[in-house]
Design a binder for these strands. Structure first.
Length: 485
RNA sequence: GGCCCCGUCGUCUAGUGGUCAAGGAUGCAUGGUUCUCAGCCAUGAGAUCGAGGGUUCGAAUCCCUUCGGGGCUACCA
């Protein structure tokens, strides 16, 4: 039974990199018919960010990555917040101390800092000098008597090599002599990441650990903890890093990396999941668009890429446009609605007629949208009493001699229409134009500016049809009067 | 500095000794459709497969060296 976990630290909002890891976790679990577990690694009390946990859970749910075990849903391997699991870490840390595989360290932060500076100054590798590993019983008793703050350090073997298998890169091996006696339990009684994640992955029966490539170098630490505790290690799957355009690890300074931003801008969850699934994984095919079900079906470990990928928001934008075009009008209208409401273009509560109108507008903007948040700007003239005129459009198309007469002619022709449909409207506009000596674009462009205030937008005749006779005729006449002389 | 990972079009990638004078996508350019924009369609530019040596009849694919990029090097994850 495959069991995977996504183990974010609530030290910030859910970001692109974290989501990508969660997607791989989830896809693999679903592909294998296993379980997807959410575990919160809140062991650094100093870096906790209020609201981060909620943001992470909301983001995962938005993306459709529902967890089978974890906060708010429970499970048989809880608790799922590490801050509520201290007894486990303390118990196993104590066991290691008792067995001589770990030891108390009383070194002060100041001493550690001095030691590091000296090592750096001497051009030597930095690392703990293991002073407390060989403390005499008397020294230890003295320090205890003084009530000195202490941590527990893991006693790494000082010779030999530690080897483990990474599912993506194969066998990786490291010299033990170069490893540090790292801290497993901090002086505040909380575990460090290295210890907590190993203990929990074991206790939660995790079979595959997906994590960023930045963890490869701490692999030996984890392997040695498993060995010291006599536990079977999981399969490690180190995911290639996601890089910014400067080729360094993607982070806040690269701009928009929090999922929140993308949700607010109006990206669709399936587009984000699809794009991120392809950042570091490939099905080996000549295609880019995959439904969630297809991703689940095709997701296997051998498709995981072993080199970093630069995050390309332009391709995500393209993909989002693709998904917007694939979305049904009903759903797209629902998705756009909040944006229109926020812009004050439509009321909070809507009649059936108003909703139908929004759907008609939706059909006209669907091909033009790349993100949902563009909808208000793009469709504003459909919802306001008077369009906002673009001065350049006015200068170009309305301030010409004869234009007022042309617009009046079109208004009259359209006003006289009995059947309100695109074909009839097109015929009316073109005929009115032809009679005034304005063929094709010569009539279409001024009419578009008069009715929408701008030069670009959906097809004129469908726009007029959607706008409705009354509004169109009124706008045409007003424009004609405004620029008459 | 030390240790480790990685290196195919700007970007994401396909490619596992011959069908690769390297395919797809994105982005870019041009053309077509059309009332504009977008979309859609077509075409094009764009990678001597980081470089140099080998092995082989034959290498992007195997070996060596080298250069480059990145990660880690905390009582952070």
């Amino acid at each position: 039974m495959v069991r995977v976990r996504f183990a974010p630290s609530p030290t910030g909002m859910l970001h692109i990199g974290g989501l990508r890891t969660a997607i791989f976790d989830w896809l693999f679990a679903r592909h294998e018919g296993g379980s997807f577990i959410l575990r919160i690694e809140d062991t650094d009390r100093t870096r906790l960010v209020p609201g981060a946990l909620e943001d992470i859970m909301a983001g995962l749910r938005w993306a459709g990555l529902q967890w089978d075990e974890g906060p708010e849903v429970g499970g048989n391997h809880g608790p799922y917040l590490q801050s509520e699991r201290l007894e486990f870490y303390q118990k196993y840390a104590q066991q290691l101390v008792d067995e001589g595989k770990a030891y108390y360290c009383y070194c002060t932060p100041e001493r550690l800092e001095e030691m590091r500076s000296a090592q750096q100054a001497a051009g030597k590798p930095t690392g703990y000098d293991r002073r407390c590993r060989f403390l005499s019983a008397e020294e230890r008793a003295r320090l205890e008597g003084e009530g000195a703050a202490k941590v527990i350090r893991f006693a790494m073997p000082d010779s030999g090599t530690t080897t483990f298998i990474d599912a993506v890169r194969g066998e990786l091996s490291f010299e033990n002599a170069l490893q540090d006696d790292f801290v497993i339990l901090k002086s505040d009684g909380f575990p460090t990441y290295h210890f907590a994640s190993v203990v929990d992955d074991h206790l939660m029966e995790i079979t595959h650990v997906f994590r960023g490539e930045e963890w490869i170098s701490s692999g030996p630490k984890h392997v040695q903890i498993y060995a010291a505790l006599g536990w079977e290690p999981p399969v490690w799957v180190h995911l290639p890093l996601i890089l910014g355009t400067d080729r360094s690890k993607l982070s806040k300074r690269h701009g928009a990396v929090s999922l929140r931003t993308y949700i607010e801008e109006g990206y669709l969850p399936e587009a984000v999941v699809n794009y991120l699934a392809l950042l570091g994984w490939s099905a080996g095919e000549d295609r880019d668009i995959y439904s969630i079900d297809e991703l689940i079906e095709k997701f296997t470990l051998d498709g995981v890429i072993d080199h970093p990928a630069i995050y390309d928001s332009q391709k995500l934008l393209w993909m989002n446009g693709q998904y917007i075009r694939m979305t049904s009008i009903d759903r797209l209208a629902e998705l756009i609605l909040p944006y229109l409401q926020k812009a004050g273009l439509v009321p909070e509560t809507l009649s059936k007629e108003q909703m139908d109108y929004i759907k008609k507008v939706t059909t006209l903007v669907q091909d033009r949208l790349k993100v949902l948040s563009e909808a208000p700007e793009m469709s504003e003239f459909f919802f306001v009493e008077e369009p906002v005129f673009d001065p350049k459009a006015v200068d170009k198309w309305l301030k010409k001699p004869g234009t007022p007469e042309l617009l009046m002619a079109v208004a009259n022709r359209v006003d006289a229409l009995d059947d309100w449909n695109m074909e009839a409207i097109e015929a009316a506009v073109r005929e009115a134009g032809a009679e005034a000596g304005a063929e094709g674009g010569k009539v279409i462009h001024p009419v578009r500016v008069a009715t929408t205030g701008r030069t670009v937008g959906p097809g004129l005749f469908e726009t007029i049809e959607t706008l409705g006779k009354q509004r169109v005729v009124s706008r045409l006449r007003k424009a004609a009067e405004m620029y008459n002389g």
